[in-house]
Amino acid sequence: MIVGVLALQGAVREHMNMISRIGATPLAVKTRDELKKIDALILPGGESTTIGKLMTEFNLKDEIIRRAKEGMPVWGTCAGMILLAKHIVNQENTHLDLMDIWVRRNAYGSQLDSFIAEKRVEGVSEKPIPMVFIRAPYVEKVGSGVKILSEIDGKVVAAREGNLLATAFHPELTDDLSFHRYFIEKM
């Protein structure tokens, strides 16, 4: 199984390492040709404004939307969650416009408000897993087809809608493979 990581900007290498550790084949995706080779796609952390613009200018956006609508599993971490959202709070334009969630950007504040939490996620892990939040967004509201996977302090930080997965935190920055396993083996 080839798992692509959108490699326009951000923490690409970390996801590639996790994918290899599970035994799948990672591929850094920068072009339409590379998009055609993959079975699943991770949208990494980084700056959503930067990745969103590059994705549009280099004609990757339409192809990602098409593949996602055909059922290819797509997982967005942090900035990737913003890219997936159909609604961005206080902002008119969206990016991929795929997942029925209302996302608030930089929801916790500046870097001084970044934090680490630990929590078990039903269906994903048996034990509590570390959750790294870096200038993170969270989900304020979800549509009826969206399943909430995890909440921290009353805010949704992980959710799934069919073949789409979104996390506000960064499993790729930890040693815990639970979320990558969940994405690759159960979606």
């Binding site: 951000g10 980084g46 870097q111 790294v132 960064h170």
Partner: peptide, 17 residues
């Protein structure tokens, strides 16, 4: 040490930028 790792990780998010 965790604060330091959060700070290093913000820089990781800036990569390729």
């Amino acid at each position: 040490p965790e604060r330091y790792s959060l700070n290093k990780n913000l820089a990781e998010m800036l990569k390729g930028g």
